[in-house]
Simulated scan of single mutants.
Amino acid sequence: MDDAEDDVNQAIAGELQLMDPRVRASQELATQLLDPEFVEVGGSGRRWTYKDMLAELPHLLGSSADGLRYEPSEISGVLLAPGLVHLTFETLLGERRTRHSSIWRKRDHAAGWRMYYHQATRVPPEVD
C-alpha cells in the first residue's frame, strides 16, 4: 500500500467513526475527528460550524445506540495534496438517502486526520 492509499484509508476510517452512534454521542470523541475550522453545509441547507456541530451532534439522527444507524456505500477518496483527502459516498439513514462529500486534513501527526469540510445532499426517492 502506498502513502496516498494509506492516507485515503485513514480518512475513510475517520468518516466511518463519525457515523458510529457512540462517537456522535460523545463530544470528546467527536472533537478528535472534527477540525477546529470545520464547516458543514447539511442536507437541509443549514451551515454548521465546529461549535454548532459539537453541540448538536449528540441530538441528531444516527446518534442514539438504539436508533437509526447510517449505512454507508460507495465510499471512495483521492489524495488532493499532502495532508488533504477528498471523500465521496452515499448513506441511508432509515429511508433518507444522502450523497456526501468531505475534505479531511492532517496538519500534524499528533492530531491525525480530521474532517475539515462536509457537504450533504439529500437524494429524492425518484433519483437514481
Rank of each mutant, 00 (worst) to 15 (best):
D35L: 12
D52F: 05
L57R: 13
T88V: 13
D7F: 07
P82C: 12
G62D: 00
I75R: 03
A4H: 13
S101F: 08
S102E: 04
H100P: 03
D7N: 13
E40W: 11
L68K: 03
G14R: 10
Y116K: 11
L60T: 13
S26K: 06
D7S: 15
G83K: 11
R96C: 03
P58G: 07
S102C: 09
P124G: 04
E74T: 08
T31I: 06
T31C: 09
M115G: 05
L16N: 01
G62E: 01
A110D: 13
R107L: 14
R114V: 10
Q17C: 09
K106P: 08
E28C: 02
A110F: 07
L79I: 02
D7T: 08
D108G: 07
D2L: 09
R105V: 13
E90C: 05
Y117D: 04
W48R: 08
R105I: 10
D35V: 13
F38W: 11
P58E: 02
G43D: 03
Y70A: 02
A4I: 07
V85L: 02
V123C: 10
A30F: 05
W104C: 02
N9G: 08
P21E: 02
Y116N: 07
H100D: 02
I103L: 15
P21M: 03
Q10R: 14
S101C: 09
L18Q: 12
L92C: 00
E37Y: 09
A110K: 12
L34V: 13
M115W: 01
W113K: 05
L34N: 10
H109R: 14
D20W: 04
S101T: 11
E37N: 14
T91S: 00
E5G: 05
P72Q: 07
Q119P: 03
T121L: 07
E56T: 07
A55D: 11
K106Q: 14
H59S: 12
D108K: 05
D108F: 06
V23D: 06
D20G: 04
F89L: 10
D66G: 00
R97M: 03
S26Q: 06
S76V: 02
D52M: 08
A4Y: 06
A120S: 12
E5C: 11
G94Q: 00
V39H: 13
A13S: 13
E28F: 09
G83W: 08
T88M: 07
H100I: 03
